[in-house]
Amino acid sequence: MNPPSPHTAPHGAHPVHEHEHEHEHEHEHNAGDQTEILDLDAEVLAEHLASITAWLPIGTGPRHIVDLGCGTGAGTLALLERFPEAELTAVDLSSAHLNRLREKAAAAGAADRVRIVRADLDTTAWPELGTPELVWASASMHHMPDPDRTLRQVHDLLAPGGLFAVVELAGFPRFLPEDAPQDAPGLEERCHAALDHHHAEQVPHRGADWGTKLTKAGFTVEGERTVAVDIGPPRTDAAGRYALSGLRRMRGGVASALTTEDLAALDRLLDTGGPHSILRRIDLSVRTERTVWAARRT
């Protein structure tokens, strides 16, 4: 996901111009809210992410990887583990995300293998990112205002014969049984329906046909794989915190579309001190899907 001072561009990135400051401030506020859930996502779904990196038809290990919209580094660290000889350039607009990635890379003993670049990928002019053999974009392509242009930029960035891995999510994870909670059965599905409507308006490229788009951009799609996630119960503490953080974020997008009764039931789930807290549920699970496309620059 896209996800130094805001007035100072790090090495390799273009400065943020005055007219971008308002957009940047809003992005940083949202990014700060996302940091916890991105870290929990990486922890809870680490095994599934590793299975995706292991599947990539990359052949000999790449020497240089670019992670576009790196977030707090789930993909970055998974790729560094998968390709121990590689160096990686991690790109994101959020300084909060990049600072967290810097901490995680240092803790993993990989700080010397990561170059961090703060840049806005929505712009037509990208910073110098080298000539990677592998470009990775996880849950970031659907946020691009002109994804077709972005795909062409990636095509031109890659080394001849290089691989582009696009990973996209099948919406927000689900955590509750269908008949839960007892006072509002089916609440989570109604929240998802409201969120899907919200995303259709605000994030129109979510769910796009990326295989077709990659082909039109000049890539040869060599593989497509969907990884189904179904974890628990019994839940881990991390899964509980993941569900809590996820439903808190979902509430912000669906509150106006819910009935008074549903909103009250959702708030009872989010009340960590209450008897109906989602952290007290023993039937919690994590269910979602992720699809990856592997596309070659020929």
Rank of each mutant, 00 (worst) to 15 (best):
E36D: 08
E36H: 07
E36R: 12
I37A: 09
I37P: 00
I37C: 04
I37Q: 09
L38N: 01
L38Q: 06
D39M: 05
L40P: 00
D41R: 01
A42R: 08
A42W: 02
A42S: 15
E43Q: 13
V44H: 01
V44A: 12
L45V: 06
L45G: 02
L45N: 07
A46N: 02
E47D: 14
E47A: 13
H48Q: 15
H48E: 15
H48K: 09
L49F: 14
A50W: 00
A50R: 11
S51H: 09
S51A: 13
S51N: 07
I52M: 14
I52W: 00
I52V: 15
T53I: 07
T53K: 00
T53F: 00
A54Q: 11
W55P: 06
W55I: 10
L56A: 08
L56T: 04
L56H: 02
L56F: 11
P57W: 00
P57V: 03
P57M: 05
I58F: 07
I58V: 15
I58R: 14
G59V: 14
G59P: 01
G59Y: 04
G59I: 09
T60P: 02
T60L: 08
T60E: 14
T60Q: 15
T60D: 14
G61S: 12
P62G: 11
P62Y: 09
P62C: 08
R63G: 15
R63F: 04
H64C: 09
H64R: 10
I65C: 13
I65W: 01
V66C: 12
D67E: 10
L68N: 02
L68H: 06
G69Q: 03
G69Y: 09
G69V: 13
G69K: 06
C70Q: 12
C70Y: 07
C70D: 07
C70F: 12
C70P: 01
G71Y: 00
G71S: 10
T72S: 15
T72A: 14
T72D: 06
T72N: 07
T72P: 13
G73K: 05
A74Q: 08
A74I: 11
A74K: 06
A74V: 10
A74N: 10
G75F: 03
G75C: 11
T76G: 08
T76L: 10
T76R: 03
T76K: 06
L77G: 11
L77I: 10
L77A: 13
A78T: 12
A78E: 07
A78G: 11
A78Y: 03
L80K: 04
L80M: 14
L80R: 11
